[in-house]
């Protein structure tokens, strides 16, 4: 009797030791960046000290009051938010169509969607650059270096993901509810507004949140398809290293600011991340 109690106690203790260890492995790199962001240039060199010496906020205030950084930040916020809203609307309509109407070639549309999501963005940079600078132009205005360009472009990887996340949700809403609403005289918009949207609201919210974070995190398109006006926060991070003489403290502060939305989302939408990342191929 006592032996099994003992072994269970050991099991519990080793579980906790293991998880505390894993948590440290996850957090120490981030903690180090936080420490760097709290130091002056001089304090950084010498023996690395993982402890925080003092609260030194100048890196943050330098970054946050910098007008270029503010512009990058605004661009990122505008692009991510607009893209997430657009993706939610379009994906809801598309999912409803795929779920309720008999459309020829639905399976092939699925395959094509996955390919869009998985294609290496670097492979499309050149044609997109040419389209953005030469094809879409009105007089002096081109799609290159505009927020609109990024908003539309990010749909390429966010829409497929959103549709396959929402597909399961909409398929789960009984079609009888649609029919009942239609018999009561509701049109297509009525059904969408009073049946589908309320019932799919949680899934829709998750779709929006994850699309938002994917757009916020994107780098390659933003780096190559904008130049001055529409640059986003991730490109700012990358440029920081190459162009200026690299003030590591400020780089760390900037990265910390970039992390904030991710942290919030992980805490509130953790369960749904896996669904979003695997196209619901692996159902929880």
């Amino acid at each position: 009797m006592s032996r099994s109690w003992q072994s269970r106690a050991w099991g519990t203790i080793s579980t906790y030791v293991f998880w505390v260890f894993m948590t440290l492995l996850t957090l120490i790199p981030i903690w180090w960046m936080f420490v760097v962001s709290m130091r002056t240039r001089v304090e950084l060199f010498g023996r690395p000290n993982l402890m925080l010496n003092r609260l030194y906020l100048e890196n943050y205030s330098n970054v946050l009051t910098d007008s270029a950084f503010q512009r990058y930040m605004t661009n990122s916020l505008v692009v991510s938010t607009a893209n997430a809203l657009l993706v939610m609307i379009l994906a809801l309509l598309a999912t409803y169509a795929l779920s309720r109407y008999k459309l020829a070639g639905r399976d092939n549309i699925f395959f094509w969607l996955i390919t869009n999501r998985m294609a290496p963005p670097a492979a499309f940079l050149l044609p997109l650059y040419i389209m953005f600078t030469r094809t879409f132009r009105l007089g002096d205005w081109t799609l290159f270096d505009t927020q609109l360009g990024l908003i539309l472009l990010y749909c390429v990887f966010n829409l497929p993901f959103a549709i396959w996340l929402l597909k399961g949700v909409v398929d789960g809403i009984p079609i009888e509810l649609d029919d009942a609403a239609m018999i009561d005289g509701a049109g297509l918009w009525g059904v969408l507004r009073h049946v589908i949207i309320p019932l799919a609201a949680p899934g829709l919210a998750v779709t929006g949140i994850l699309s938002w974070i994917f757009a916020w995190n994107e780098y390659l398109f933003a780096a190559n398809l904008t130049s001055v006006v529409a640059r986003t926060i991730t490109t700012a991070l990358a440029e920081f290293v190459t162009v200026t003489g690299t003030n590591w403290g400020e780089l760390a502060a900037m990265s910390m600011v970039t992390l904030v939305p991710s942290a919030i989302i992980v805490i509130f939408a953790q369960r749904y991340i896996v669904m979003g990342l695997t196209f619901g191929a692996v159902k929880e």
Partner: peptide
């Protein structure tokens, strides 16, 4: 523990690079 373990997934790749570079 699971929430903390999941955190790196949502970090922007460019920020992951910055973290490890530091």
């Amino acid at each position: 523990f699971r929430i903390i373990h999941t955190f790196p997934l949502m970090v922007a790749p460019i920020a992951v690079g910055a973290i490890w570079r530091l």
